[in-house]
Design a protein around this nucleic acid. Structure first.
Lengths: 234, 234
DNA sequence: ACTACTAAATGAATATCATTCATTTAGTAG
DNA sequence: CTACTAAATGAATGATATTCATTTAGTAGT
């Protein structure tokens, strides 16, 4: 059962500000570059927003940029690289501002909800992020930095910070899938009689009439993690 | 951002024991069926075990069964159905026996570790399971039944059981990915100076010299969830 | 034994993708 | 004006899942 090798990508971008002087290129550069990473990222997001991840094909992406599919490969090594660009863009949308101003508990709470909400709309990225070396995603790394600093300031023992963040993140990724699950996911259907405890539990939850069951589960788990981890602080 | 429609599958199986009498088929059945769902499942698992999920193609699956690819479609509606068969087979491997004999805390602990371990080897199934209606997966449903019954017996309020299980499952799925992450996933590399808190936390964890960092995070999160949820019992 | 019926298997398309590569295009530096 | 080069092109290539008309081969009823 060999897992996918998880190769590190090599997204190709060049000096954005070609400084004069020694660091200048030896030969001339064509200025008329139609494509760049920011443009590719924006186009990919536009496409995903309109047609979902099924709509994100290299051909469609190229078409939306008025370019041949092969042109993309001058800027990106594979489709996975495109997904990485999108992922890192989204990481910047996760709200970490509360770590600067609020107590640890509410900062974690806000961060986690925001993180879940962002990636619930982008679950196809989860398998990519989950095993992605942070080196390859600067904005994601920036998010980790802010969160780590918040944990440190709150009195977390240094050697536990990463594990706590990883655990929270795992919970967040899994919960992001739940958001997209169909409403009837727990209908036991024809097997209802043979599963009385589960069927009863499902009915009992349904009787509560929550609009978003996924939010109940997320809240329940998140608060437990916050209380549990909060006890580690010194 | 339309999520994938999550269509319910229709795996085709027929009366395994053709009872004589009124329920008999009108016309004859060819007995020489080379394929059946159990065989397809076993072959898929064999293939995955040998070459990973990349090796699981309909062509390879058919070849391993000495059959034309199109023959599979007499038994299965799509490749997703094959993945469902595999998933449900794996659900039966998750250890729920502790719910019959041990206190709630240790039963949950054993179940969760077992669940994570099984699916850490099969992360490509996670996006499939996470949004899968339980109706389509009898063994998975059986697992839920045992776990629900354990929660009920332990004094859990009925209306919280499903949410608690979902939260645990979310954490488990996310954690299964971690197991497969590369060891250097947190190397901040060139950006180390700009991320002092995070880099420090990573080093501090590394200094502990744990063999499996993913296990540390899983243990930390799981114990927090167990304590937090345990408090809900009456 | 003959016939009708049917599940299941076949083999040949189809369609959709990502990706590769030899070649062309068009800026720029010296 | 020349040399150089990043970037774009267009035409393959190779996987892949899936469809479909057709064939195969059991079985039940007569």
């Amino acid at each position: 059962m060999p897992a996918s090798p998880a190769k590190s990508p090599s997204i190709k971008e060049h000096d954005p500000a070609p400084k004069t002087g020694a660091s200048r290129r030896r030969a001339g550069r064509p200025a008329a570059a139609v494509l760049d990473l920011a443009g590719i990222t924006a186009a990919a997001l536009r496409l995903i927003g309109k047609n979902g991840y099924d709509g994100l094909t290299m051909a469609a992406l190229a078409r939306s940029l008025h370019v041949a599919p092969s042109a993309l490969y001058n800027h990106v090594e594979s489709k996975r690289d495109v997904l990485l660009l999108v992922e890192d863009h989204l990481a910047a949308l996760v709200d970490v501002t509360a770590f600067a101003a609020e107590p640890w508990e509410s900062a974690v709470r806000k961060w986690a909800w925001s993180y879940r909400d962002v990636f619930a709309e982008h679950t196809p990225l989860i398998p990519v992020i989950a095993v992605l070396p942070v080196t390859d995603a600067p904005q994601t790394l920036a998010m980790y930095e802010t969160v780590s600093a918040g944990f440190r300031t709150a009195g977390f023992p240094a050697e536990r910070i990463v594990s706590a963040i990883v655990a929270l993140e795992s919970f967040i990724f899994g919960s992001a899938y739940d958001v997209t699950a169909p409403a009837d996911i727990f209908e036991s259907g024809r097997m209802a009689e043979s599963t009385p405890s589960f069927t009863g539990a499902v009915r009992s939850l349904a009787a509560q009439g929550h609009e978003k069951p996924a939010d109940e589960a997320f809240s329940l788990g998140l608060e437990a993690l916050i209380v549990g981890f909060g006890a580690l602080r010194k």
